[in-house]
């Protein structure tokens, strides 16, 4: 029995349907590959001495982690793709990943969550707005862009309204006190569009389950701008 477990800190990441990207920071490069795997390249050294010394390659369901040290531990200069795996690769399951890799896994997970929160899963064009339900479900973020310039963002933590004039309000959950008539209309419409997106998501997901092939029906776009 482990007193600490990775699952107490983070859920297995999910990178299904996310588009490829490669993003570097000071000491690492995190990528979503076209296979939907997530790759972390850890860098050591600076300038011409900079090398990719360690690679974590995480399956798109987050459960399988391949770890290797390129060029027999000497590393390779940073390239535009991760160095390929040598023969001696350590393969771990999410449940038995050694603690020294947890922080790196959590970092990859945080990045994936950020991308999911910005990736539309359901896009609905209504009479007044484009409503997007994002991939970070359950309780996914919602972004409603009104054709007149207004905007609403809903997350589990806050609701932000931007009126067409540019004036904005942020509410930390709970009641929406002191809203003017214009903002009330925006919120009401956003709420309805959000509900419709959730219903569409559930209907499409049910159809998707009936199919044997693992072919995703998402993202979906419903309607068009009037």
């Amino acid at each position: 029995y482990q007193m600490n477990a990775l699952c107490d800190k983070v859920s297995p990441l999910r990178a299904h349907r996310l588009k490829p990207i490669r993003q570097r920071t000071k000491n690492a490069v995190v990528s979503i590959l076209d296979t939907e795997e997530v790759c972390m390249e850890l860098l050591k050294g600076s300038g011409a001495q900079e090398r990719v010394k360690e690679v974590l390659r995480i399956s798109c369901d987050g459960y399988t982690i391949h770890i290797y040290h390129p060029n027999e531990g000497r590393g390779f200069p940073l390239d535009d793709r991760p160095p390929s795996a040598p023969e001696d690769v350590y393969v771990y399951h999410f449940d038995n990943l050694p603690e020294k890799f947890w922080k790196k896994y959590q970092y990859a997970s945080k990045f994936v969550h950020l991308v999911r929160s910005k990736t539309p899963k359901v896009t609905l064009y209504t009479k007044y707005a484009k409503c997007m339900l994002m991939e970070n479900g359950p309780k996914a973020d919602v972004e409603v862009l009104f054709y007149d310039g207004g905007k609403i963002n809903k997350t589990t933590e806050f609701l932000r309204i931007v009126e067409k004039s540019g004036k904005s309000y942020t509410f930390d959950g709970g009641k929406l006190n002191g809203l003017n008539e214009e903002a009330k209309i925006y919120v009401e419409h956003a709420h309805k569009a959000h509900q419709t997106c959730l219903e569409l998501e559930s209907t499409i997901a049910a159809q998707e389950k009936r199919k044997e092939k693992q072919l995703s029906f998402f993202p979906i776009i419903i309607g068009r701008r009037p």
């Binding site: 588009k19 000071k26 000491n27 922080k103 970092y107 990045f111 910005k118 484009k130």
Partner: peptide
């Protein structure tokens, strides 16, 4: 291991996010 997730935000990431959104009201 100096992994700072805040560093991830930059212009390149913003333009990637914009590409994810279906056209019409970007």
């Amino acid at each position: 291991d100096d992994l700072d997730a805040e560093e991830l935000y930059d212009d390149r990431l913003e333009s990637y996010f914009k590409q994810l959104v279906p056209p019409g009201m970007q």
